[in-house]
């Protein structure tokens, strides 16, 4: 199977603190890939590096067959899109202007962009906020708008950092439908989330990131085996060996 992303020997540190050390990961093309791990494991840093926002100290990253370097950077950026936490939006634009701007940047055909924009906004319940300034939108609407912008840029790889946080149940369902449609078209999606139930239902392969490394890679076959007896949450806890608190530590409570 083709690899959408192949990372080998990746190093990243902030000052003297290593965040990723000899990091290795391969994400198959067309996969909805879940990346889970405790707080501070380095998930967001990894997304930051892969979306070109952060430099890294060493190693190699290959995205859709091209090595991520200065020469290929723009070509790679054209193939990827992301929804970060918190979402990056142009606060003083209206939702409509923002999506237009994104379409301009990604050279989306003028003829059908309006129809695409309107249908996305309608599907995710954002039509009434079309001409409202983004800084007046609620947290959930902002997240959905960021998702719309990412989809409209027609990416081959989609990075979603905590995409379902602050979003209502109906919209989560619709976002999942969109992600499944994109998968049918061969788009690879990488999702980081702490809501393990969603990751469990939506993702094909899942990797657990802990202590600067991938400590477990669960492809769909392995998951089926493991999840016969236990939930993803229990599997996660068994891999991430967190020191259990003493029984009487909260006795004052």
């Amino acid at each position: 199977m083709d690899q959408a992303i192949k990372i080998s020997g990746l190093q990243k540190s902030y000052g003297n603190t290593a965040v990723l050390e000899d990091f290795e990961l391969s994400v198959p093309s067309g996969n909805i890939f879940g990346l889970i791990g405790p707080n501070g494991a380095g998930k967001s840093t990894l997304i930051g590096i892969l979306t070109g926002l952060l430099d890294y100290d060493g190693g190699q990253i290959v995205i859709n067959g091209r090595e991520l370097n200065e020469q290929n950077e723009q070509n790679i950026k054209r193939q990827i899109a992301s929804v970060l936490q918190p979402p990056l939006l142009f606060e003083h634009f209206t939702s409509h202007d923002f999506l237009h701007y994104i379409c301009d940047i990604y050279n989306i055909d003028m003829q059908d962009r309006q129809q695409k924009m309107d249908s996305m906004l309608e599907y995710l319940g954002l039509s009434e906020f079309k001409h409202a300034k983004i800084n007046k939108l609620s947290a959930g609407s902002r997240k959905k708008l960021s998702f719309c912008a990412a989809i409209l840029s027609q990416p081959k790889i989609l990075f979603l950092d905590e995409p379902f946080e602050s979003i209502d149940v109906i919209s989560i369902g619709r976002m999942k439908t969109i992600l499944n449609r994109l998968q049918e078209k061969g788009v690879t999606t990488i999702i980081t989330s702490h809501i393990l139930e969603i990751v469990e239902n939506l993702c094909d392969d899942i990797a657990i990131l802990h202590n600067q490394k991938i400590i477990a890679y669960l492809d769909s076959e392995t998951r089926k085996e493991l999840q016969k007896d236990s939930s993803l949450s229990e599997i996660f806890e068994s891999y991430v060996e967190v020191e259990k608190p003493k029984n009487d530590v909260l006795k004052w409570l």
Binding site: A132, K133, K136, L137
Partner: peptide, 24 residues
């Protein structure tokens, strides 16, 4: 604290004009 609002803002033409004259 700022609350969600649907109030219309219609300065999009000005932004588009500026972008077309000076770049995005």
């Amino acid at each position: 604290l700022s609350s969600q609002s649907t109030a219309n803002t219609k300065t999009g033409w000005f932004r588009s004009w500026l972008c077309s004259q000076t770049g995005n």
